[in-house]
């Protein structure tokens, strides 16, 4: 469980995240949606101690993120940001292997090798393991990073816009994968996502933010209504029920 209590981030006089309080349940997929500048990524960064909080607190499984030692937190929570430009030239296997760093401090054991092999296999990267990451396609690279996070073997996996730069097929693959992480491996997946329909189809919980505040928290059924979406995005969005999923239509 992630407990966020009055989390606040200010840059100068602008408050980017304004005293957000909520509880993200353990297990399942939670999506954070909202228009640009809503503070989604900032909130995620604070949850994962990449950004210090100006006020308030975030507690993950009883660990206060601003007070817990780095390696301890790194064994509980993994964060993947959207920009993963590596200037370091690493093979896929090496990259995934670094996910084990919080566990082994750079001295790999047999157990680590098993974790790495499993992560590579889970993401269908075994054949690419010896390729350099900078030689992969965008979709493959994204998978390699997810494999690293998987090797990190944390209960909580946080992702900032994991669908960025992915085409439709790869986006669907990614969301299915995140679903599997939650359903098969029992992980708690939290992601920032722009596409409300992906959020609707694949999440258990949706957090809707706007202007630094948390407007709503609920199931896709509760959030995917014209009224709520209008409140969040300020756009008329029709919601249709298609094959059991609520799909927002906002293209025209």
């Amino acid at each position: 469980m992630i407990t966020i209590d009055h989390a606040t981030k200010r840059y100068g006089t602008t408050t980017v995240v304004d005293a957000v309080s909520c509880t993200i349940p353990r297990g399942g997929v939670t999506s954070i949606i909202g228009p640009n500048g809503a503070g989604k990524s900032t909130l995620l960064s604070m949850m994962s101690r990449l950004l210090p909080l100006d006020a308030g607190s975030v507690v993950v499984d009883g660990l206060d993120v601003s007070a817990t030692a780095g390696p301890v937190l790194a064994r509980t929570l993994a964060i993947l940001r959207q920009e993963n430009q590596l200037t370091v030239r690493l093979s896929v296997r090496d990259l995934v292997g670094f996910g084990r760093f919080p566990h082994n401090n750079g001295r790999p054991t047999v157990v680590d090798r098993e974790h790495i092999d499993r992560a590579l296999a889970y993401l269908d990267l075994t054949d690419l393991a010896h390729r350099f990451v900078d030689e992969l396609s965008g979709g493959q690279r994204q998978r390699a990073f997810i494999a690293m996070v998987l090797a990190q073997d944390t209960d909580y996996v946080l992702l900032d816009e994991p669908l960025n730069n992915l085409d439709m097929k790869h986006s669907v693959d990614m969301m299915r994968l995140l679903r599997r992480l939650a359903d098969d491996l029992g992980k708690t997946v939290v992601l920032v996502i722009h596409d409300i329909n992906f959020a609707s189809c694949y999440s258990d919980t949706i957090l809707a933010m706007r202007e630094g505040a948390l407007l709503r928290q609920g199931t896709p059924e509760e959030i995917m209504t014209p009224a709520v979406l209008h409140e969040v995005y300020d756009v008329e969005i029709q919601v249709e029920q298609i094959r059991g999923n609520r799909i927002g239509v906002y293209f025209a």
């Binding site: 064994r75 964060i79 993947l80 370091v88 996910g99």
Partner: peptide, 13 residues
């Protein structure tokens, strides 16, 4: 070399 956020994620100062 993988960046500050990467380093922090892996629990390193």
């Amino acid at each position: 070399g993988m960046g500050e956020e990467f380093t922090t994620n892996l629990g390193l100062d």
